[in-house]
Design a protein around this nucleic acid. Structure first.
Lengths: 246, 246
DNA sequence: CAGTGGTCTAGACCACCCC
DNA sequence: GGGTGGTCTAGACCACTGA
């Protein structure tokens, strides 16, 4: 482990953050895959030539960012969307009353297209690059609640198709992870109120013109790379979007 | 400092968390007021009879919860809503394009009433207790964007009136803090899409029936005590609600 | 029981701020 | 220069897990 000269460096970063960057590389390179246990703190300390406390602080930050999950007595694990605990991390819609509901995702269509200006800008692609578009309906207790239009670059998800979507029983992000090796770690949502058009209204079984939430989401993988754009139309008759402000 | 017997205690909590609770009491009791510097880490370590590292970990958690603010070389300070840095902590509405906008809050009405069932439930009051209701219009660059209906228990904000609201140039939460000693530390927002009624539509200068965001917020002070309920109608023509999903 | 993460300590030194 | 928070270390011990 090479220590940097700190006092003269204009871009000083503490040792634990350098360790964190090294560990991020291991995650990004797939040395530690989703669900895997990473080496123990003492092993990592040995490998990087620092004290256990320094490794610990690096892991602390990564756990706070939901990249790693610590389990006392067992070890530290790479977070995965397969874990039911992280299932609702990206879906903030909850029923107005009552507890957990049975959720079901019904794929409607899936086709290829060329990236228009908007998608290209959001996903950092060149205009005209192939993208894959998915429409799907999400239901709670058999009532349609969310209509999603999902845009992803085709090169990252080469064989994504309606058949594959229908054959999968996992969440979409679980499938991205296990089938395409793309892990979503962060997202931004922009929310507006809009009136339902004919097509959306029919699918969500609400009158045309009804107010809907429009939730536009950009999801990012390692290195802050945007890889999915999504427009979700939420019917908020019996559900609402819940947000905690710290 | 009395250390607890750890291994036999069914409600084990580590030392740093006990220190944190003691410090929370100091905050709640007003020993350290908003904006004040709290004692240095070494002083606190001495006072509580623990090592500096343990105090540090307690402060770490409180800083992560936005209760304290660390400033290297200067000290650790009690967070305050007067600080411009924490101004947008609770307002997630941002313009679709362009940067900062001039914001202006215009109080419309302010009156007393008795708590109905809904307000009483949300604020943990008895039905019939006196509450104060405020309506106000928030504008960005002189365009009305948010119409708020705000419900607070009158006993906590005894002399709240239209005159006081009009005379104040601070944010509402700054005023709660400096005038009534009530500090908001956390909030929950529930978001739905609704159609504008006549009154809201006129004030927000949109057609009647236009889709609006309805943002219902419960804000909490120390000890997770709810002290404000708020229904905000957001016009999302030129703005949107921004949410980061970690 | 051994191995993991979690807590706590004491001490050294660095970076930052202000007098 | 003296005070503050920030980093790093080495070592001890505790709590939890699973064989």
């Amino acid at each position: 482990m090479t220590r940097q000269v700190t006092s003269l460096s204009p871009t000083f970063s503490p040792l634990y953050r350098q360790i964190k960057e090294l560990m991020m590389s291991s995650l990004e390179a797939g040395e530690w895959g989703p669900g895997d246990a990473i080496p123990s703190e003492s092993e990592l300390a040995l490998r990087f030539g620092v004290s256990q406390g320094t490794v610990r602080k690096a892991i602390d930050e990564m756990a706070a960012e939901n990249l790693l999950v610590r389990r006392q007595g067992k070890g530290t694990f790479v977070a995965t969307h397969n874990d039911p605990r992280s299932f609702f991390r990206f879906l903030r819609l909850v029923p107005n009353e009552g507890g957990l509901q049975q959720s079901h995702s019904e794929p409607i269509e899936c086709w290829r297209a060329k990236a228009g200006q908007d998608v290209a800008r959001v996903l950092g692609l060149e205009v005209g690059k192939p993208i894959t578009i998915v429409r799907r309906l999400l239901s709670f207790d058999a009532e349609p609640v969310v209509l999603d239009e999902i845009y992803v670059p085709s090169d990252l998800f080469p064989d994504l198709s309606l058949e594959i979507l229908k054959g999968s029983d996992q969440s979409l992000y679980s499938m991205y992870e296990s089938r395409y090796g793309v892990r979503m770690i962060r997202a931004e949502e922009r929310i507006r109120a809009v009136a339902a058009d004919k097509s959306n209204a029919d699918l969500l079984r609400v009158p045309e013109g009804s107010p809907l939430l429009l939730v536009e989401r950009v999801a990012f993988t390692y290195g802050n790379k945007p890889v999915e754009w999504r427009r979700g139309f939420y019917s908020t008759q019996k559900h609402h979007y819940l947000n905690e402000l710290g």
